[in-house]
Design a protein around this nucleic acid. Structure first.
Lengths: 210, 210
DNA sequence: TCTGGCGGATGACATTTGTCACCGCGGCGC
DNA sequence: GCGCCGCGGTGACAAATGTCATCCGCCAGA
């Protein structure tokens, strides 16, 4: 099962980031079983992760997306900006085209879903370490779908509306007039083919456009 | 770290259920590391889990809540009904009082959150195996809070409304009149102290009342 | 300089939501 | 039998929401 019982000094060095402690520890255990992979640090927030990667300069950085303080996508983007040599694998629950696109833009080498079989993880790490790209097949095909029709304003407004905030309150928070908020919402609703703000927010969320 | 390097035939036998393959496998790896715990089966849906537990009669059943086909809570309730001797530990993302209450009603011996430290899991399994109860401290205190003020109808209506369905459509789906739907919604909104249906749905969800 | 687009705003209107008061019916306890 | 809930329903009304047409100021490109 372990293709290379290599000398431990040559092991692939990995940093893992994931906000749920239980999952974090479990993933580490999963990778540690492999003889050729060494988990050199674990992080529970985006900021911790960024520091860990900059400090340890691992070969591979495996990260969740939704974390406190910084998302995994933010961390990936920052690493790209700083030209840290580490390759990034995104590991997330969400099969959302928007997330995948942003991940690739942020220079990620891999995008895997948490409902893949656990056995495939170590292989993905090895592949990415060798310079290959690993994209979950389910996403790879459907992915290059629609390209997010929403403007920034529409996104902001929709996010708040989706949490149940009333038009007036949204207007206050964004320093817009209530009418304008309703206009944006109306635009978003029609762009997304929804029947009302709530449905629109739901659709946008599932597509990863937030 | 392993209190008992016990004879393997005496290992604590565990079945794990969790819909995300990656997490499932990782948790199994985490427990397998311990010398005194043996993972005898893994399941990715509630139904699979039920069959696995009935078939293997493990000492401990560790399960997620939200899974396809049957929730972990449903499985626990069914096991209680059938008087299967297996002790149940719920392992979930959600610190919701409503879930905990239902878990205990369903005879669960443990309720843990996925953001606990991974090291604590094996200990929790051992404790439960010895007949102790293990409840996440964060929940244990706050838990016996408010007791879900919603009626069944209000719950149904709120669920659909929270997904963006319009009053008329909800009425059709539940074979009620639109006015009645609005009445239920209004009741729910005031019971929950919300400002509108969406906020009400959000509140109910976070409390675990769905 | 003109023109077109974009962000933001208005006003008017139809529809949907949220609230309230009140009715009818079937149990259930007394 | 009587009263009283709980569930479902009506009707009416105010407020919030969704839709449109239109307008203004600004700035980039021809």
């Amino acid at each position: 099962m372990n293709p290379a019982r290599t000398d431990h000094r040559k092991a692939i060095r990995v940093v893992i980031a994931e906000d749920q402690g239980m999952v974090l520890g479990a993933l580490a255990a999963l990778l540690e079983i492999e003889g050729d992979i060494a988990v050199v640090a674990q992080a529970r927030t985006g900021k911790e992760a960024l520091e860990a990667v900059l400090g340890h300069k691992p070969d591979v950085f495996l990260t969740d997306i939704e974390m406190p303080e910084m998302t995994g996508l933010d961390v990936a983007a920052e690493l790209k900006r700083r030209r840290a040599g580490t390759r990034v694998i995104i590991l997330t629950t969400f099969a959302r085209a928007g997330y995948l696109r942003r991940a690739l833009d942020a220079g990620a080498s891999g995008y895997l879903l948490k409902d893949m079989r656990a056995e495939e993880l170590a292989d993905a790490v090895r592949r990415v370490h060798q310079g290959l790209r690993v994209i979950d097949p389910e996403l790879a095909t459907e992915a290059w779908g629609e390209p997010d029709p929403l403007t920034d304003r529409e996104r902001q407004v929709l996010r708040l509306a989706g949490d149940g905030m009333a038009s007036g309150d949204i207007a206050d928070q964004l320093s817009l007039s209530e009418g304008t908020v309703r206009n944006y919402l109306s635009e978003a609703i029609s762009k997304l083919g929804a029947g009302n703000r709530v449905e629109a927010a739901r659709i946008a969320r599932t597509k990863g456009w937030l």
